[in-house]
């Protein structure tokens, strides 16, 4: 079955959703473990993330790959659930209050999902209270905050402050066009990712650090 798994990875890399769907159907029908299918998806998106980070591909290519992945996930998720296979960790994600931009946040959500995290996407213009409520509800290990506007950077700072005050144990990572490592440190975030692919590495790093 290995060639078919490989085919699925390749379909994801190229963003070919019809092929991705077909390969997923065939793999599941042949009784391949859903975790193995998930690994093939992850391998495909991992490669997409790597090329995105290296400036070899850009937002449209990532979006089209993510759409192919989602087509496959729609078939795969019910099967994963039925065998009791759930992601180990949850990431809550959203764009901070006052900011309506979502392309970057969506890219991060898709990449993180492909890396086999459960993703709770709260959307855009999310209040600190809504973030904190979601953290409590989903017992998330990591929260990802996004801001595109320089003017919503203070809202990001306030969200981090309120999360800390709430006492919820979570690792906070931040990103978005105007955000820098320096700003992330200043506002007391645990991690910073300059792009969607790095966000996956950063989430893994933060979780490893919590476990250690």
């Amino acid at each position: 079955m290995e060639p078919k798994l490989n085919e699925l990875s390749e379909a994801i890399k190229a963003g070919r959703r019809k092929e991705a769907k077909l390969a997923t159907e065939e793999l599941l029908a042949a009784g391949v473990a859903p975790e193995e299918v998930m690994s093939a998806l992850s391998a495909g998106m991992d490669d997409v993330g790597r090329r995105f980070k290296a400036n070899e591909i850009f937002v449209p290519e990532v979006l089209v790959a993510a759409r192919a992945m989602q087509t496959s996930m729609n078939l795969l998720e019910p099967v994963l659930l039925s065998v009791g296979s759930e992601p180990e960790h949850t990431v809550v994600i959203g764009t901070v209050e006052g900011d309506l931009h979502d392309i970057g946040k969506n890219l991060v959500a898709m990449m993180v999902k492909a890396a086999n995290f459960k993703v709770v996407d709260l959307g855009t213009n999310v209040s600190p209270d809504a973030f904190i409520a979601a953290l409590r509800e989903h017992r998330a290990a990591v929260i990802g905050l996004s801001a595109l506007l320089t003017t919503t950077m203070p809202a990001m700072r306030r969200t981090v402050e309120l999360i800390r005050e709430s006492g919820v144990a979570v690792k906070v990572m931040v990103g978005g066009a105007p955000i820098t490592q320096q700003f992330a440190q200043e506002i007391g975030a645990d991690g910073y990712a300059p792009d969607a692919a790095s966000a996956v590495d950063e989430a893994k790093r933060l979780i490893a650090r919590t476990a250690a």
Partner: peptide
């Protein structure tokens, strides 16, 4: 919306 970027494919 960002559908434009997918339309490119």
């Amino acid at each position: 919306g960002d559908e434009v970027l997918l339309d490119m494919f």
